[in-house]
Write a protein that binds this DNA or RNA. Sequence first.
DNA 1: AACGGATAGTTAAGAGGCTTTATAAAGTGT
DNA 2: ACACTTTATAAAGCCTCTTAACTATCCGTT
Lengths: 410, 410
Amino acid sequence: MRSRPVADVRARNAGHLRGLNLETVLSVAMQREGSFTRAELIEATGLSAPTVGTLVSHLMQTGIVKDLGTGPSRGGRRPSFMEFNARHGYVAGIDLGPTRTRLAVADLRGERLTDRIIPTPVRLGPAALLSRVAGALRALMEEAGAPIDRLLAVGAGAPGAVDREKGIVTFAPNLHDWSHVPMRDMLERALGAPVQVENDVNLAILGEHWRGAARGHDTCVFIFVGTGIGAGVLIDGELHHGHHFMAGEIAVMCMGPQFIDVDFGERGCFETLAGLHALAEHWPEASQADPAGWVPSLFEASLAGDRRAKKVVDEVARLIAIAVANVGAVVDPSLIVLGGALFAQAESLVHDVRKIVERIRRSPMEIVSSALGKEAPLSGCLLVAANDARQRLRHGLREARVSPIPVAAG
Amino acid sequence: MRSRPVADVRARNAGHLRGLNLETVLSVAMQREGSFTRAELIEATGLSAPTVGTLVSHLMQTGIVKDLGTGPSRGGRRPSFMEFNARHGYVAGIDLGPTRTRLAVADLRGERLTDRIIPTPVRLGPAALLSRVAGALRALMEEAGAPIDRLLAVGAGAPGAVDREKGIVTFAPNLHDWSHVPMRDMLERALGAPVQVENDVNLAILGEHWRGAARGHDTCVFIFVGTGIGAGVLIDGELHHGHHFMAGEIAVMCMGPQFIDVDFGERGCFETLAGLHALAEHWPEASQADPAGWVPSLFEASLAGDRRAKKVVDEVARLIAIAVANVGAVVDPSLIVLGGALFAQAESLVHDVRKIVERIRRSPMEIVSSALGKEAPLSGCLLVAANDARQRLRHGLREARVSPIPVAAG
DNA sequence: AACGGATAGTTAAGAGGCTTTATAAAGTGT
DNA sequence: ACACTTTATAAAGCCTCTTAACTATCCGTT
């Protein structure tokens, strides 16, 4: 089900060498925050001065690197500054949620130019829905002054099982009639740009790792608890998908031997025990609709000493703590991030979970609350898109080196 | 705690190019089972005929590739056959067990020349113990006709927590007085060859993946149940260690909310509930010593209808099934291999576990019994050693393109 | 104000490695 | 015998990299 990427990026001859060194220089250029000089590239890449010179002039011809003119001297000849042209192209993120869909447009570094939240057009079928969303994104790009033909990559998230190789949303219980929807192809046709589809919790951990609570934690896990429950697993800085793209499907975790006999699929798994629906059942004041309405009251009642509320809260904290501890035991991350509607509405819960996990096992991993909240998957979308765009740019440089001086078309 | 390997294997100049192409040719040569010709290398590498010619002559000078003379014609000039010289060096495996230690000597392909089982000298301290084991390995190599100065790499396994970066056995509960033992350094001094230390369950899944039940399953998990309980996790063909080298520490998994309050560390975790000690407590006929004595009788009694035995067996099967299902949910492997003393003594158990897992969750992963049994970690040792040796050879070619024949240090 | 020294970048010359083309060796098949 | 195939080596040419020399500025000191 998974093809091994035997992508041999090794150079074989002088031509490949050139392509790789172009990539190397471009990589360094993209990593730099601001402007830089040839001398700095020489230092960073280890290449010789003349080589860097020709590589840079090549990159400037394509427009990926912008000349900024000379700067102030540092004791000798004035350096010629340049910078990575982050506006050489644009990327977009689409976080498709059950009720709201978040859109954003960013430059090649992933810096947002603009974003927007629109109601998910739930009454439409998948094709029409995605077409509508794509239309909204086109409008947003126009407003941001980002020409659509400069859209180089899109990252899209869906709340369900995703086969990211085929770009298909296999199943999304919270989206009406979504089963085997070829989301990537549909969006690519509507937008004319390559799209990567990914599960929303996976995107959340990518987002938190990039710009949120998990910065610097290359092996970490996001555990999402809301109506649904799921986890995103990052290993050595890369998402772990699993053989059937079902890694992190902790909704179906079994929470104890006592749950095996009693009609398991319905009542015994993690999601049916600790998801918002389960809580609502045990808390009469829960109007099924918006958890922001009743979840805080449940936790306040518990803190105030309400027996019934306390029991519900204690039980859910325990269940989550068991999941956290057990995922931690298997994966051994340096950090676990907790997020989702439940944690968003109940600040004390993270603390409770942390305390119980410590009782279960003197655990070396940190446990923190999501820093980006509902924005996390969208950030992940932009990261995925920016990485994809940059990879395509680099790869393009390598391929298009057939003629000695590939002049920028035009 | 983990250094990212930013190993830039990219060529920068012509010299590096040569090194990489040498590696490429050698890689293909090592993968071939038997003999091959220059023409086949041209086909496999994509390099031109003259280049392959010079690379091959270089490899023959070092002795890594052996000339076999010309073969029969296939309609044209007779090809000149050659083969990878698997005896250019040797590797060894050391599986240090609580009572027995397995040793093996193999060629660079990992094919065993000889092996031996010796009693682990448990009365000695770590240093003396390892010295004794190293002595036994030296003797074994001599018998096999493998000169010790040709030992290029060693893979060693220990039953406990291992910091493989530092080569230290952090803690091994089943080895007397083993805590923070610098096993790698000790063995390297005693053997004069580079040693890789790894946890034994991790080695087991490597072994099963290489030559056992997990062949072809690049993402899979070994779950070991004996006196201790542990798991080895393979992701995309590579071991997953976790941030603190504690991935797969499923001994401490919490098996249900009811176990949190009752003195957890002692009685509520997976190992204390389902390890052999736990079983022995519930089965009076268990003489604490050898599980081969009483475990089969327990399972026979259960099958025969003994209520008490059945209850014990059912409970342990359930607990293991929960662990299997939950590890499966987090990692999403294509296969889970079950092994260890418990499964070795009770063939029906794998079947029982499989049935319960299917009841918990219609799971897409296979569940099978270990094919290599107690030999699995030793196979893993040889794989680790062979890979290390081959990598060193390739790397050596790249670096030491100065002296033609790099003789192993004496 | 002039000069030495430092920094940044370019041009020129040289070396290494790969590829294409040509050549040689050794068969097979008609 | 002759044409053609397969395999391997030799010669010539091309590309890219590097070192060395050179240009372009600027700073600080005398």
